[in-house]
């Protein structure tokens, strides 16, 4: 007997209905972004959803034009969904396992922007390089 012969499988195919509420929350955040410029973040893993719910939500949001990969203590992937300004963010650890997952409503996800302190350090490094060249 091999493993597939055992008539028990992981319960991944059941929709609980919990993912539907997330769509409403995304709509509210998008409305807020347009009116005040402030979006928001939804923690996908904090919600009681089955794997099927998660898949359903991904399908409902669709896929957009932008995909950003970041190698920061494990791979992170930021994908614009089919809805502009709605981003699906996956953070993986150094072993490639999903550590956290968010839906962010923002014109540009904050994680992408450089911090002023880091820009300053970069500028100092560049000036020092230039002076070494001259």
């Amino acid at each position: 007997m091999t493993l597939p012969d055992i008539p028990v499988a992981a319960a991944t195919g059941t929709l609980t209905g919990n993912a539907r509420a997330v769509l409403g929350e995304v709509a509210t955040l998008l409305d807020g972004l347009l009116r005040t410029g402030e979006g928001g973040l939804i923690d996908i893993r904090g919600l009681p959803m089955s794997p099927a719910d998660r898949q359903w939500l991904l399908e409902q949001l669709g896929k957009g034009e932008v995909e950003i990969l970041m190698d920061i203590g494990g791979r992170s992937r930021i994908v614009e969904t089919g809805l502009p300004a709605v981003w699906w963010i996956e953070h993986r650890n150094e072993h490639g396992v999903l550590a956290s997952e968010f839906v962010q409503v923002a014109y540009v996800p904050e994680l992408i922007s450089a911090h002023p302190d880091d820009v300053e350090s970069g500028l100092e490094a560049l000036r020092s390089r230039i002076s070494e060249l001259s």
């Binding site: 970041m70 920061i72 203590g73 953070h91 956290s100 994680l111 302190d117 880091d118």
Partner: peptide, 12 residues
């Protein structure tokens, strides 16, 4: 460990 990695850690 960069600031972005730290931000990612804190978000998680």
């Amino acid at each position: 460990i960069t600031r972005r990695a730290f931000l990612k850690y804190c978000a998680t």
